[in-house]
């Protein structure tokens, strides 16, 4: 699929809940499904839900989002969160990346409670992809562990 084949899409970041499917369907807009490393939430969780609900989508890797914003291809971000805290929202790895890119491109962010995802059966960090080790075994100690991220309310304003 080429970028000139669509006008604008709604970006979803985080674990889609089954409760949110009705809203996604009512948006009647193409959905941009980001990969969401390291867990591949986009591929393993979000796409099956969207397919089942017959919602139109396309897939991209996380590092392509900047260019999609640059090209004005994203009109809204739906950010799925784990919990709300006084200092901000708690979301999966990359939630700050996506929230800031949305803010820097003046794209509105709507927050929604996340669904359930089995993190235990997925990749835990950048050392593997879909269960496949990407580096030589002896080098396995050199990784920055992903974690839940707090996105402050000032970023989401």
């Amino acid at each position: 699929m080429r970028l000139n084949e669509f006008d604008q899409a709604i970006l979803v970041w985080g674990i889609i809940s089954s409760e949110s499917i009705a809203q996604l369907k009512s948006e009647n807009t193409l959905i941009a499904v980001s990969e969401m490393r390291p867990y591949l939430v986009g591929l393993k969780h979000n796409i099956p839900l969207l397919k089942k609900a017959d919602i139109d989508f396309f897939y991209c890797t996380d590092n392509m989002l900047g260019f999609l914003f640059y090209k004005n291809k994203i009109k809204k971000t739906l950010l799925f969160y784990k919990e709300l805290k006084p200092q901000g929202l708690v979301g999966i790895c990359g939630s700050l990346y996506v929230s800031l890119l949305s803010k820097l491109h003046s794209i509105p962010v709507q927050i929604i409670p996340q669904g359930k995802f089995n993190f235990k059966s997925s990749d835990l960090d950048a050392l593997s992809l879909d269960g496949k080790c990407l580096i030589l075994k002896k080098d396995i100690n050199f990784v920055e562990a992903p974690k839940e991220e707090i996105v402050s309310w000032s970023v989401l304003k």
């Binding site: 890797t61 990359g94 990346y97 050199f142 990784v143």
Partner: peptide
């Protein structure tokens, strides 16, 4: 690969970890 084989300190991250 090229840094670690030269014993240069390096850590691998997912692309979306840059902001945090």
């Amino acid at each position: 690969w090229e840094l670690i084989r030269n014993n240069i300190p390096a850590k691998l991250i997912c692309d979306n970890q840059a902001a945090i």
